[in-house]
């Protein structure tokens, strides 16, 4: 593997995100390992879909870094399917007679410390409802990031296929799809998602769906423009004269040219979706309770104003940091930088 500076950045980022991805193993009131009747560790036994998806996305990231893109894809698909079979919320403690190993932080985002334990038990203290702050931040970051990454993945896939199709296949159907997406693009996205979220029963997956719906047109427009530009190239005309279908043309000829643009836009999309999700959660229409996201934590911290609490500061810093990291990673490198790195 040719380890460039960019690779190191990615490796560091993946390492930093590991505690967030494996949040149920880091912050959980259930023990990690238990003896007695249950041979499996209860923390792993009671995973919710979001827990599984978080871990799977992190593992997929590692696979991509190791150059195993297909493994990553398979992992995401399998985890998406498996998450459908899991209960929506984390299952409570199983009957375990002997606890062999506790999680480092013995609280999850939902657990309330009714005994008001001493500060040494809570690494960063508690919020006003006696919930562990570190657990809240870890789970909040995990859910916000999960939302941003899943939406970006789906938007990139959908937008690339639809954009290439409408650019390469000119039929009344493709024109209709194009106009429809243009109409969708005209809606104020945040307001539309807000209204749609308020109309339906709050659900994480539904929120992802609305966000995908309103981010899709911009990705579509971008890919369509790029494909139309590439269509004029001689190699594209040659492939067409060889009888390549639009799908073959996209997959074998255009995708390598589109990869840099798609990566850049995907990183920017992550920042945008993070911002949108924060705004939605701030308005009370984000990830449904008892789950938390960074926007909801920001709102909770803001409600304590004029007292500036650690919750407010940490959630502000995390949102800014994540968005900034995404924008920096998405910054398209100049040819000089490219040659310097490789």
């Amino acid at each position: 593997m040719n380890t460039t500076r960019a690779h190191w950045v990615w490796i560091l980022l993946t390492g930093a995100l590991a505690p967030v991805a494996f949040a149920p193993l880091l912050c959980n009131e259930l023990p990690l390992l238990a003896g007695g009747a249950s041979p499996l560790s209860p923390a792993l036994w009671g995973l919710a879909p979001r827990d599984l998806l978080g871990m799977a996305l992190w593992c997929a990231g590692v696979c991509v870094l190791c150059g195993r893109g297909r493994w990553a894809l398979a992992l995401i698909v399998v985890s998406l399917l498996a998450s459908l079979a899991l209960p929506l919320e984390r299952v409570g403690a199983t009957a375990a007679s002997d606890v062999l190993l506790h999680c480092p932080v013995p609280y999850s985002a939902e657990s309330v410390d009714r005994e008001l334990s001493s500060a040494s038990v809570h690494w960063l203290g508690t919020d006003r409802y006696s919930r562990d702050l570190l657990a809240l931040l870890v789970y909040g970051t995990r859910d916000s990031l999960l939302c941003a990454l899943l939406v970006t993945l789906m938007v990139t896939a959908l937008g690339t296929v639809s954009g290439a199709w409408t650019a390469l296949v000119r039929t009344p159907w493709s024109t209709t799809v194009m106009r429809g997406l243009q109409a969708l693009d005209a809606f104020p996205a945040l307001l539309a998602v807000l209204v749609l979220q308020s109309l339906c029963r709050p659900s994480f997956m539904l929120m992802l769906g609305w966000l995908v719906l309103f981010r899709w047109p911009s990705q579509h427009r971008l890919v369509q423009g790029e494909v139309r530009r590439l269509e004029g190239e001689a190699w594209c005309a040659a492939a067409r004269s060889d009888g390549a279908s639009w799908w073959g043309l996209l997959r074998h000829e255009m995708l390598p040219h589109l990869r840099a643009m798609l990566t850049t836009h995907a990183a920017l999309n992550v920042a945008l979706v993070l911002a949108m999700e924060s705004a939605l959660a701030w308005l009370g229409f984000g990830v449904p309770a008892p789950a938390v996201s960074l926007g909801a934590l920001l709102r909770q911290g803001q409600d304590d104003l004029p007292f500036v609490t650690p919750l407010l500061l940490t959630s502000l810093a995390l949102i800014c940091g994540l968005c900034f990291a995404a924008v920096l990673l998405g910054r398209r490198r100049t040819p000089a930088e490219e040659s310097g790195h490789s």
């Binding site: 920042a271 993070l274 911002a275 924060s278 705004a279 701030w282 926007g295 920001l298 803001q302 104003l305 004029p306 500036v308 407010l312 502000l316 949102i319 800014c320 968005c323 900034f324 995404a326 924008v327 920096l328 910054r331």
Partner: peptide, 21 residues
């Protein structure tokens, strides 16, 4: 420019509330 573009509107608004009251 990178910082200003990356920081979401919600965060800037909360910061303005804290700092400028």
């Amino acid at each position: 420019t990178a910082v200003a573009l990356a920081v979401p509107e919600t965060v800037v608004a909360v910061l303005a509330l804290i700092v400028l009251e």
